[in-house]
Write a protein that binds this DNA or RNA. Structure first.
Lengths: 227, 227
DNA sequence: ACCTGAACACCGTTCAAGT
DNA sequence: ACCTGAACACCGTTCAAGT
């Protein structure tokens, strides 16, 4: 027993354990509350011990995204490109919905990791084997942008989640923002019994995705070429 | 002269002066280097003096975005909806290009300010007066998402800006990411004399924007209705 | 050689003391 | 009543001292 410390009991710290703990902590407390110090604490370790497995916090964030990309379903083996791409992006979206902090972290990355590059490569492959030219695939990848990772690219997370305004404030809103009011009252009426919050996020995501995929398929059918 | 301090010389601190100084500082040093303390320093003021004009840093960031939205051109008076929307979004994009930190700040906002609401309202108005139904306009606003503010929604800022890899690394890349390589070599060949860095960002942005606008105009012409 | 406590150079914001 | 210095509770990371 002599010389045996509490540490011996713990599973040895690995890069993978660090990254997974960071994902769990961000899920639980949000990305703003994720610090190297708090992460070390949840692992029962001194802060500096983390720096053996990640060079710095940037590399930690990169690694956390790699974990999430690993959760996205692999591409379906058979079927047309449109269905396969659609399926995979909807899978990516599910991952992002389970980790709401991910979109802001992705936004802050400057260089893709090998894991993200591999994901992008396989996504490009789905367009290419589907019959899109190299040039068209190139522009399509730009057009899809972060949607390829399941981003909804909404302007605000959930603006209509605010408590229902009283009549006086509603009247002011209608005067100042007539067009917004026109839409929100329509939505409130349509879905009063369905959803309390407002829009159907899944419908909106699929509407946007299909708008792009339909446009792309149209270009492919018309044999789009540069210039 | 007695009792006259250095402060008397300075223009009095206003909310507007605080916000504009913050924008200038973020432009010059990046958003990560923007702190309440450094901002106060550039204004020749003690940090706590800022809190008379903004409640906290969140409100400062909101206000900075309001300044940028104010730089976007107002909608063109005449013309079809497609041209007017296109023009205005390209104007918003120019603003974002001049303030590269803006996209990450927008991403971090949770509630739109009155200034942003007014911008969204006028954008919705452009679709409505162009002949889109309330329902279609609603979904279209979701589909446009942050692109309405000039976002490119690219996955990474400038991935091909890396120094040209040597032959050995290039061979490894080609083996690991064959589809990415297929595109990047094509781009490098096409634009070798035009652009050193890689893609033509303006072209890619307009390609994506037109893909969406064409799709939307198609739905309008076909008289799209829900369900 | 490895590990780690203390220290450094920062943060945003509170609050009590000064005018 | 207004203003502000010091303090509080944090950061990410460096580095020298300990084993």
């Amino acid at each position: 027993m002599i010389g045996m410390t509490q540490q011996v009991r713990r599973a040895p710290l690995t890069r993978d354990r660090v990254l997974r703990a960071a994902v769990t902590l961000a899920d639980a407390t949000g990305i703003d509350a994720l610090s190297m110090r708090k992460l070390a604490q949840t692992l029962g370790v001194v802060p500096m011990a983390l720096y053996k497995h990640v060079a710095n916090k940037e590399e930690l964030l990169d690694g956390m995204l790699d974990v999430l990309v690993g959760e996205i379903d692999p591409p379906a083996a058979a079927g047309d490109w449109r269905t396969a791409v659609r399926q995979r992006i909807l899978s990516a979206r599910q991952v992002l919905l389970h980790h709401p902090w991910a979109s802001r972290v992705i936004e802050s990355r400057t260089v893709p990791t090998p894991v993200v590059l591999a994901y992008m490569d396989s996504m490009i492959g789905m367009f290419r084997t589907g019959g899109l030219s190299v040039d068209l695939t190139h522009h399509v990848m730009h057009a899809m942008g972060s949607r390829i990772l399941g981003f909804s690219q909404e302007l605000f997370g959930a603006p209509p989640s605010a408590p229902p305004p009283d009549a006086e404030i509603a009247r002011q809103m209608a005067g100042r923002y007539p067009y917004i009011t026109e839409i929100t009252t329509r939505v409130a009426h349509d879905e009063a019994s369905v959803v309390g919050s407002g829009c159907d996020d899944q419908f909106e995501f699929e509407f946007s995705l299909d708008l792009l995929l339909d446009g792309i398929e149209g270009l492919r059918l018309r044999g789009w070429t540069p210039r």
